[in-house]
């Protein structure tokens, strides 16, 4: 039981990271109709901002993380204004290729700005005997609890925003049919801009949470990015909360296979299970089958 509780909390922590990234991916997919392959790269860039402010300039983590979030939002604005919006006549595949170009540009600029060395990143609350809580025999760090709480709170407020505000309604309208909502007077341009900013901020938070496990470096988000995509198909692209559920499921199943079956092949097993699942439920957990018009 002790092991299971530890695994559960670890899954909740990594699941929150995946969920934040997945929510960003699905937000952009729904409003811009393109996979954002650069989600991880944007997160990495702004994690570098936080890490540099923290380690080289010596600022407090409680100041640097909000600053990194602000720079993330700015990054989102810049990307939308200079790359996505001018590419209106470019097809979906073209937009995805633009995000690929963005990965190359961002990952090329990062070492020039911040150096090639990986930067170690501390946790929000350092792990020690004082900062942990006993729960059914398992010891859980305050940091894990804090990151889980802040991600869930952030996502919950995002859902509240989507459901109960007029801007949320505008986002949902754009997601369901951009052309029609434009004709009805929804400012789709601002909606797209906002979703890029939000996705960038979520990606950055995910990067900052995942950074202490290794260090801030160029490839830190590869795994998160991949898991975010799988979370989206597992949960279904049709809803905003489906990918979040998918993310927690992926994290939990990977941790469980990792511990109880095999650590070498856990990733492969999880992917195969996702493929089999997709075969029987081709639109994900909470997806609806869209009826095609001829």
């Amino acid at each position: 039981m002790k092991v299971f509780i530890t695994l559960l909390f670890r899954s909740l922590e990594t699941g929150s990271v995946y969920a934040l990234a997945a929510l960003g991916v699905v937000l952009i997919y729904r409003t811009s109709r393109a996979f954002n392959f650069a989600q991880g790269a944007i997160g990495t860039l702004n994690a570098f901002v936080a890490a540099t402010l923290l380690m080289s300039w010596g600022w407090s983590i409680w100041v640097t993380v909000p600053i990194a979030m602000v720079t993330a939002i700015l990054t989102g604005f810049v990307i939308d204004a200079f790359f996505i919006r001018p590419a209106a006549r470019v097809g979906h595949e073209g937009k995805q290729i633009i995000t690929l170009g963005l990965i190359i540009v961002i990952l090329g600029i990062t070492p020039i700005l911040f150096g090639v060395e990986p930067i170690p990143m501390p946790r929000f609350i350092e792990f020690s005997t004082l900062t942990q809580v006993e729960f059914m025999g398992a010891s859980i760090g305050y940091n894990a609890l804090f990151t889980i709480a802040i991600s869930i709170a952030l996502m919950a407020s995002a859902f509240w925003f989507l459901k109960f505000t007029s801007w949320g309604l505008a986002i949902r309208a754009t997601a369901s049919n951009e052309m029609a909502s434009k004709l009805m007077g929804v400012p789709t341009k601002n909606v797209t801009m906002m979703s890029w900013a939000t996705a960038a901020a979520f990606g950055t938070l995910a990067a900052i949470i995942v950074a202490p496990q290794s260090a801030v470096d160029i490839n830190m988000m590869n795994d998160v990015q991949m898991s975010a995509f799988f979370a989206c198909v597992l949960g279904g692209f049709q809803s905003f909360y489906g990918p979040v559920i998918g993310a927690y499921l992926i994290a939990l199943s990977r941790n469980l296979t990792n511990f109880y079956i095999t650590s070498t092949w856990s990733t492969v097993i999880v992917y195969v299970v996702i493929l089999i699942f997709l075969f029987f439920k081709p639109v994900g957990l909470v997806g609806k089958k869209t009826i095609k018009k001829v």
Partner: peptide, 8 residues
């Protein structure tokens, strides 16, 4: 990267 973006 810039070249890819510009061409697209």
């Amino acid at each position: 990267g810039v070249l890819i973006i510009i061409v697209v």
